Amino acid sequence: MSDFFATMLASGASPNSLRSYGLALLRWWRFLAAIGVSWDRATPVEARDFVLWMRVVGPVGRPSGYAPTTINHALAVVKAFYVDRAAAGQGPLVNLIPSAAHRAGRQVQAHHNPMAPFTAGRRAPLRQKILDRLPRSLPDGMFDALFAALGSHRDRALLAFYVSTGARASELLGVSVDHIDPGEQRIGVHRKGSGRLQWLPASADSFVWLRLYEQQLDRPDGERALWLTRRRPVRPLTYSATRRMLQRANLSLGTSWTLHDLRHTAAQRMIEDPNLSLTDVQWVLGHAHLTTTQIYLRSRTDEVVARVLEHHRTRRDRPTEMPPAAGYTRDVLDVLLSGGRRG
């Protein structure tokens, strides 16, 4: 397995990608250990049972199994691992994770017309169907309630930066003290995947809460991480601890908001601002493709329902009396339709 990760590193994979691939392979290795099959003896039958196991036995706190996106990611990682091992002359000769081309017996989109858009192909065997869901964002009232439920200036500063910068959870947690610019109201984050430094604009309130957080903080000498734990020993704040912080606030409110919902909230707020273009929002969010940003253009369910109800109300209040036809006066119509006589 170390050779596989060495190949990923040589290909420019980021530490986050290595961690993601490592966790997916660890899940596959644990499944093989449970059924008593070595990795180089696995067959498509074990791959099928692996998917069935993930659909039923999920992580702690989720009784309905792993999410479809997690299952598809695990299949992609396992397939990439066996491709690498086959190239090295190890493992099965045929990859045990089938592809859509394998089902069709030909290469998908092999003779695609470059002037025409790509069409959605058939889903590969074992891959899970992904529901087309709208990004979940917090309405202003719910965000205010969540903000009030937080217990420290650090947590409030984090929440304010999340909804004003649109940064990913890991990106904001990785900010160092030398990447804060209150004068320009910017914060520097290293983008997920590419690792490049990007300075994102943030709200003035974010820096106010950041200042209050720093006044209460006893920062150890030489510690460069911006976000630190409140309990000793003081160390950089982790993703798990930040998620737990949000879970405590959710518990008090009876909600289930996630850190990624805060990024969706920032995106939705920027999309609704007529002074910002779609490419502006794409730059802030760090999307490689504009089509990814376009998902925020679709209306949320509550907005559609409110507009349709308003449509029904306006139709109910609309006068039903029809205006006179062209060329006829009201008194002439009264004579023609009611049988009355003109005086």
Rank of each mutant, 00 (worst) to 15 (best):
S2K: 12
D3P: 02
D3L: 07
F5D: 03
S14P: 02
N16H: 15
S17Q: 14
L18P: 03
R19K: 15
R19M: 04
W28A: 11
R30K: 13
R30T: 10
F31E: 02
W39Y: 08
D40P: 02
T43E: 04
A47W: 00
V51S: 04
R55P: 01
V57D: 05
G58P: 09
R62D: 07
P63W: 01
G65F: 03
L75P: 05
V77S: 01
V78L: 03
A80E: 03
F81N: 00
V83K: 12
R85P: 02
G89S: 05
P92T: 00
P92D: 00
V94H: 05
A101W: 07
R106I: 11
V108W: 02
A110C: 04
A110H: 12
H112G: 01
M115D: 12
A116E: 14
G121E: 11
P125D: 08
D132S: 12
P135G: 06
D140K: 13
G141F: 08
A145Y: 03
A148D: 14
L158W: 13
L159Q: 08
F161L: 15
Y162W: 15
R168K: 08
R168H: 08
I180G: 00
D181E: 09
E184A: 12
Q185C: 08
R196N: 11
Q198S: 08
P201Q: 12
F207C: 03
W209V: 00
W209I: 01
L210F: 04
E214Y: 01
R219N: 05
P220Y: 11
G222K: 06
W227A: 04
W227K: 03
R235K: 15
L237G: 10
L237V: 07
R244E: 13
A249G: 08
L251V: 09
S256F: 10
S256M: 09
S256R: 15
W257L: 07
D261F: 06
L262H: 07
R263W: 12
R263S: 11
H264K: 10
A266K: 09
A267T: 14
D273S: 14
N275M: 12
N275K: 15
T279G: 06
V281H: 11
Q282D: 12
W283M: 13
V284E: 09
L285H: 07
G286S: 09
H289Q: 15
T291Q: 11
L297Q: 11
L297F: 08
S299G: 00
R300P: 01
T301Y: 12
H311T: 13
R316M: 11
P319A: 05
M322Y: 13
D331W: 13
V335S: 12
V335I: 15
S338H: 13
